[in-house]
Design a protein around this nucleic acid. Structure first.
Length: 563
RNA sequence: GGCCCCAUGGUCAAGAGGUUAAGACAUCGCCCUUUCACGGCGGUAACCCGGGUUCAAUUCCCGGUGGGGUCACCA
């Protein structure tokens, strides 16, 4: 069999060789210690926490050492493609603080050229194109070389034939797949190939595996250290009928010619390492450093079992979930860092105000077992993040969020800027700031009593106070209310009412001697608090009233007396 | 089923051949306090099992078990 002739027959119009591309895409000239990483999503229009998790690793690895992080679009499967996915992807990643130096970018980015296939998107950089669908001739040059060397061959088997083989293998408890004797078109003669081609038969190109499963190879992984696996024996498809490569081959070719140093990807790819190792070797290329990170898991309510988060079942996996609830992007990032990197949380405690980019990120500190997603922990991290923000930052963020997701609230926020700045400033700054703000939707619910439009009674009146006493407390309270009182003068008046009506001024007295009083000052001020805020819990009432203004205070008290 | 990865409190996790086995979240109690939040103090709670190696294994090795992943012309 003349392999060179076969290669010519299959790819008559491919005139470049891999060697030519070596020159077109030379080794990068980077400072010592800098690395090239990449994010390589398929444009399905769906971005999830796991993508962000990986993207953060790519971004940190590259940027903390002055390296390059680029974005490559893996669009070799037109079935999965979603129109407009790339600009959305870029926007979302940017929202969460991930920016790329090279590759796919937004249309209009300086130094970029438009991409015809994708509206709103463009690309830049010397190692492109960055859409795999535009790189067909590069892949084919590499396939042609493999065919010419007898390492790959055309396979004309139909889907039915393959299904039959698989069925027989499964029945016989053999490993399924096209390998060894099942690779029926491995050794077709040139004439046979010519004949089938002339008949218009379609084909794929398969790699001719010389692997021996009793032989093991070793690959280094940045997280797990050395991984040892048996050699691959499958004649995997490297070029599909649509003239584009499979993931396996595209990965090898692109990460080689784009000069990627570290391949960060999900651990689900570890199983195909034997294929990749084999392909790199066949091409005569150096294998990159892999960084297989773990999946985010959750406990399935139905089964009680730990399982990988799934985009169909778990809305909390989608990044849009956090955006819609109004989590600060920084909070999501901090949370991811704390579960991603075992030493981040300690570092953060020691450096509460330092930019997280100052943290020294190291892959060997990354988790190597599947991490259970914990919304509790996210919320806790978020509270700390928001506690560090200024009232103006909170306000601006809320406004931006409401503009996109809740127009009614947007109007309210917009009209009451001065008041809200004061609201968000309650107990902010200082040594022990309040930590009750978590995400926009929750924050709005938390402050809703500042608006008549959203005020409602959410708590029960204290059981210790009778209805008559309640009305009496409120009447006396509003009679004596003077907004110019300072906090202690104001509270003295509340104490006065408390004592007059037979309640204990000191809660301890009541606790010691419950029969001597109807209740204590906490119950009396509880009545006032519910009247003003609609709930039993709130920040310091005096402060709240100062912010609300006298008119609103009066209206609330009157409303409560009527109730 | 084959292959691979993983295994420390409920969760995230540090850790070394000999430790009272960190810390954070959650939880419980107390303190502060007119409520909440913050803060402080304290409590409950863990090395999957069985063999080996060793004076000594939770730590190293082997084997189970459990969980996860993967076996496409999808990535």
């Amino acid at each position: 069999m003349d392999h060179k002739k076969l290669a010519e027959l299959l790819f008559p119009d491919i005139d470049k060789t891999p060697e030519d591309y070596e020159k077109i895409y030379p080794e990068r000239d980077l400072a010592e210690g800098s690395v090239v990483t990449r994010l390589a999503p398929s444009p399905t229009g769906y971005i999830h926490l796991g993508n962000l998790y990986g993207a953060m690793v790519d971004e940190r690895l590259a940027h903390q050492g002055g390296g390059v992080c680029y974005l490559r679009i893996e669009d070799t499967d037109e079935k999965r493609e979603v129109e407009g996915a790339v600009p959305v992807l870029l926007d979302t990643l940017s929202y969460f603080g991930i920016e790329f130096d090279e590759g796919a970018c937004k249309a209009g980015t300086p130094g970029s050229e438009p991409v015809p296939s994708e509206e709103g998107a463009a690309q830049r950089g010397a190692y492109g194109p960055y859409w795999q669908s535009m790189r067909s001739s590069i892949y084919k040059a590499c396939v042609k070389k493999l065919v010419a060397e007898g390492k790959a061959y055309p396979c004309f088997m139909t889907e039915e034939e393959i299904a039959d083989i698989r069925a027989a293998q499964t029945a016989a408890k053999l490993d399924p797949g096209i390998y060894g004797q099942y690779a029926k078109h491995r050794d077709l003669t040139l004439e046979e190939v010519e004949r089938r081609l002339a008949e218009g038969q379609e084909y794929v190109v398969r790699f001719r595996s010389e692997g021996d499963p009793s032989r093991y190879f070793k690959v280094r992984d940045a997280i797990r250290g050395e991984i040892s696996m048996p050699e691959n024996i499958q004649d995997v498809v490297i070029l599909k009928k649509n003239d584009l490569p499979t993931y396996h081959f595209a990965h090898v070719v692109d990460d080689h010619f784009m000069r990627t140093d570290i391949v960060v990807r999900g651990e689900e790819w570890m199983a195909s390492l034997p294929i990749h190792e084999q392909l790199f070797k066949a091409m005569g290329w150096e294998i990159p450093l892999y960084c297989h990170n773990t999946s985010l898991m959750k406990i399935d309510e139905a089964t009680g079992q730990k399982r990988k988060l799934s985009k169909r079942k778990d809305p909390e996996l989608g990044l849009s979930f956090y955006k819609e609830l109004g989590y600060f992007p920084e909070a999501v990032r901090e949370y991811l860092m704390t579960i991603l990197c075992s030493d981040f949380e300690q570092w953060r405690m020691a450096n509460p105000d330092t930019d997280y980019n100052e943290f020294n990120f190291s892959p060997d500190k990354m988790s190597d077992s599947g991490t259970l997603f914990d919304i509790n922990k996210l919320n806790d991290v978020s509270k700390d993040v928001l506690a560090r923000k200024s009232a103006a930052q909170i306000y601006d963020f809320m406004l931006g969020w409401a503009e996109e997701f809740d127009k009614d609230k947007y109007a309210l926020l917009k009209e009451n800027k001065d008041m809200l700045l004061k609201v968000f400033d309650i107990d902010r700054g200082g040594e022990k700031p309040r930590k009750d703000l978590v995400y926009a939707q929750q924050i709005f619910a938390f402050i809703k009593y500042f608006f008549d439009e959203t005020f409602e009674y959410e708590s029960e009146w204290p059981a210790e106070v009778s209805e008559e006493d309640r009305a009496e407390i409120l009447r006396r309270y509003i009679e004596g209310y003077d907004p110019s009182d300072d906090n202690s003068a104001w509270f003295e008046k509340v104490r006065g009412i408390t004592a007059d009506l037979g309640y204990a001024v000191k809660p301890k007295d009541y606790k010691k001697n419950p029969d001597a009083y109807k209740g204590h000052v906490g119950h009396v001020s509880g009545v006032i608090r519910i009247a003003i805020t609609g709930r039993a819990n709130s920040p310091d009432l005096w402060t709240v009233q100062q912010i609300m203004g006298t008119e609103m205070v009066r209206k609330r008290i009157e409303k409560a007396i009527e109730a």
